[in-house]
Design a protein around this nucleic acid. Structure first.
Length: 739
DNA sequence: ACATGTTCCCTTTTT
DNA sequence: GGGAACATGT
């Protein structure tokens, strides 16, 4: 298939910055890969091309597709393709020494950072109720996303006394990480930018410059950035630095910006033209993915946002089936419906990989997984409670870190008594305090425990531990990584301890340990000669993406966020209720609501042929039964593109009786035979009641007439969120009357 | 030092 | 409802 005119224009444009506004399903990756291939065909050397993506999956796919396009004509492996974080890691390992980092520095994940921070907060002696490690790290992360140091926190709008605490914590945290030869995610970007920024002094570098970092500034003749709408300011600066002497092409879709909460700044794509002189803008609007009806729904959702660059997707493939909306009683009914339909389709020879089930938050996945597995449908759950967050996995990975990087106190402290070897918290605390006092790494304090005032019994055990770690450390260079891990499992007594315990939980842990060993084995197979550092980097940056082998016979369950960039024949978008999607936490903030709307847009545009939106009128949230009403996004869908949904006729004002299962809303589900559930599959019973909807008028005897914003609870505890003029109140429904 | 009990907060979204 | 962090008892 040849490129359409817009795609072609984006591929061949040269000589000035290029902004490609690529709507969902318009062949964005195609444009990027063709552009890179064209550059190589024109004689640009592969090592002078950089392609940056947001996720590892996208990077892998891009590389594969570039390889395929170039078919051995070019040394495509010399192209730099990677995520922001992996590219920064690469730069810092090579050139980070002036910043105090060794080439073998460790990348700390959020949990590692939190463990460092919790000690710092203890030292600072601040209230652990007011200042939690993750809370303070949140501020630090926001600062880092914008390239701000400890002294510039006021630019975040952070006020006293929090600012002082965060400033002190931030300063100490950076020192602590540096002495541990470690960086966190934010540092990867921050340090790389600092390095490159320093190299752009008054003495401008040039080709042939001997300074390695200045050479780097000249290296890339072409830089291509994917998903540019999700970049944060520091990433924007990084891109500008790397493309300082080359040509920059950014690709993205302002309508798919969904990471504002993480510091991404849509204005970078909105204002790219202004900030980059001579920018050429190309719009991709022809959609090759979805049916017309799906696109009509997507457009109806997104057009309500303000501040868009504005695109309208179109297809010449026809309208296709209508988008379905199915209203169910409870989240279990919802899950059963999804499971039943997919089961039927699979029985008629559909492929599992064509199905995806989306939800707003991970918490919603459990019931769905339950019901799907109940019908024998294999599920692949993306993200969620990660394998790599299990205690046993973290323990073993901590052994790897501690062996590889003796300076990493936090990992050493984690494993010193794991499995239990009689080195208790008192002992570890004494050693830590001693190490901090003398300004030495914990590892050194461990070797001279008598100086820290540790008792004789503990001293003996510590000696055993130190010898154990040293023995394993010696093995690092002698055996392959997977063999080393096996030795760790044995030599530390980890396996023995789990076996001795013998209960179900320990057996599960043992299985996880086996799985980790297997995973490392696979990694070594794919990357012969890889060491601890390579594996750990993959773990931390790839979020531990697991082997895709089990993918074939399984359907995919994931949050809408993780669905970005993917497409499926049939998509189920579940939990389409107010306060679920859109999430309760954003309904009062118009800015966040726009992001939520973009999220809905992303979800809808994932579907190729079939899209089903489901919602439950009652749902358990935190174990509390909540009454739900159809999401505003459901209301926004164009009636002609949708089935299973009709407006209820206006009703006379009903009596103000409010009981459980006491409302219907103005959206009614038309049961069609293949979709309907048998009565015995439904939880609870039907009942008659009144109609409630957001925006309806409700009267209260003291406050007068208010506008209904939402509600919570059931039965006697049903409460209304009401706006009376400028004030909002939450009032028990039984004190109110509908108008 | 470890096992069991209790409370709390949680739920956005993740490189 | 449920997991993790804390507290208490042996």
């Amino acid at each position: 298939m040849s490129l359409n005119p817009a795609q072609h224009a984006a591929v061949v444009h040269r000589g000035s910055p290029l902004l490609v506004l690529a709507g969902a399903g318009t062949g964005k990756t195609r444009v990027i890969t063709h552009r890179v291939a064209a550059l190589l065909d024109e004689g640009v050397e592969p090592w002078r091309v950089l392609a940056v993506t947001f996720t590892n999956k996208a990077a892998a796919e891009m590389r594969t597709r570039i390889d395929r396009l170039c078919e051995g004509r070019h040394a495509t492996n010399e192209i730099w393709v990677g995520t922001f974080h992996s590219i920064c890691a690469r730069i810092l390992r090579r050139f980070g020494q002036p910043l105090g980092l060794s080439p073998r520095f460790t990348i700390y994940d959020t949990a590692d950072g939190a463990s460092v921070m919790s000690r710092i907060l203890e030292e600072l002696d601040v209230s652990d109720k007011l200042y939690t490690p993750r809370g303070v790290l949140g501020w630090i992360d926001r600062a880092k996303n914008r390239g701000l140091g400890p002294e510039e926190l006021d630019r975040l709008g952070i006020v006293e006394p929090v600012r002082s605490v965060v400033r002190k914590a931030y300063t100490r945290y950076q020192q602590r990480l540096l002495t541990a030869d470690a960086v966190d995610f934010g540092d990867l970007l921050l340090h790389a930018v600092a390095l490159l920024r320093d190299a752009t002094g008054p003495v401008r570098g040039q080709l042939g410059d001997t300074d390695p970092v200045r050479k780097l500034l000249w290296r890339f003749q072409h830089v291509v950035v994917d998903e540019f709408q999700d970049t944060n300011p520091i990433q924007g600066e990084l891109v500008d630095l790397l493309a300082a002497h080359g040509e920059l092409c950014v690709v993205g879709d302002d309508d798919q910006a969904i990471y504002g909460w993480r510091g991404a700044d849509v204005s970078q794509i909105l204002e790219f033209g202004e900030s980059h002189e001579g920018t050429e803008i190309v719009r991709l609007e022809q959609n090759y993915r979805s049916t017309g009806h799906i696109l009509q729904c997507a457009d109806a959702i997104i057009r309500k946002n303000s501040g868009r660059l504005g695109k309208t997707l179109w297809t010449d493939e026809g309208d296709g089936d209508r988008v379905r909306v199915v209203v169910l009683e409870t989240e279990r009914d919802e899950a059963r419906l999804v499971a039943r339909e997919i089961r039927n389709a699979l029985d008629e020879d559909a492929s599992p990989e064509d199905f995806a089930v989306f939800y707003r938050t991970h918490a919603q996945s459990r019931v769905l997984e339950d019901e799907l597995r109940g019908l024998g449908i294999g599920c692949r759950i993306v993200g969620g409670v990660a394998f790599y967050e299990r205690a046993e996995v973290k323990d073993l990975l901590s052994y790897l870190v501690a062996i590889h990087n003796p300076a990493s106190d936090t990992h050493l402290a984690r494993i010193v008594n794991r499995p239990a070897r009689g080195i208790g918290t008192t002992t570890v605390q004494k050693l830590s305090a001693h190490a901090a006092e003398r300004g030495i790494p914990l590892w050194e304090a461990l070797q001279r425990p008598q100086e820290a005032g540790v008792g004789t019994a503990a001293i003996k055990r510590l000696r055993g531990f130190v010898e154990l770690v040293e023995r394993l450390r010696a093995r690092e260079s002698e055996v392959p990584l997977d063999a080393l891990l096996e030795e760790i499992v044995e030599a530390t007594g980890y396996r023995e301890a789990l076996l001795a315990d013998g209960d179900d939980e320990s057996m599960t842990r043992l299985e996880n340990v086996q799985e980790l060993v297997g995973n490392v084995g696979e990694f070594v197979l794919e990357n012969p000669g890889a060491g601890i550092a390579d594996y750990l980097e993959r773990m931390s940056l790839a979020g531990g993406e697991r082997a895709e082998g089990d993918r074939d016979r399984a359907i995919t369950l994931m949050t809408v966020h993780s669905a970005k960039g993917l497409e499926f024949d049939s998509v189920y978008l579940t939990g389409m209720e107010e306060r679920v999607f859109p999430h309760a936490r954003v309904v009062d903030d118009p800015i966040q609501m726009e992001e939520e709307r973009r999220l809905a847009y992303v979800a809808i545009t994932r579907a190729r042929r079939n899209l089903t939106l489901t919602l439950a009128t009652r749902r358990r949230i935190y174990g509390q039964l909540q009454v739900g009403i159809p999401s505003r996004f459901v209301h926004d869908l164009p009636p002609d593109a949708v089935e299973g949904l009709r407006r209820a006729p206006p009703r006379p004002a009903p009596a103000p009786v409010v009981r459980e299962r006491s409302w219907n809303d103005d959206v009614v589900y038309d049961a069609t035979p293949d979709v309907a559930l048998a009565p015995d599959e439904l939880e609870g019973e039907a009942g008659e009641g009144i109609t409630l909807w957001v925006g309806m008028a409700v009267k209260h005897k003291d406050f007068g007439i208010g506008e209904l914003l939402g509600w919570q609870g059931v039965g006697k505890n049903l409460k209304f969120h009401l706006r009376f003029g400028g004030v909002t109140k939450t009032i028990l429904a039984r004190f109110c009357e509908p108008m």
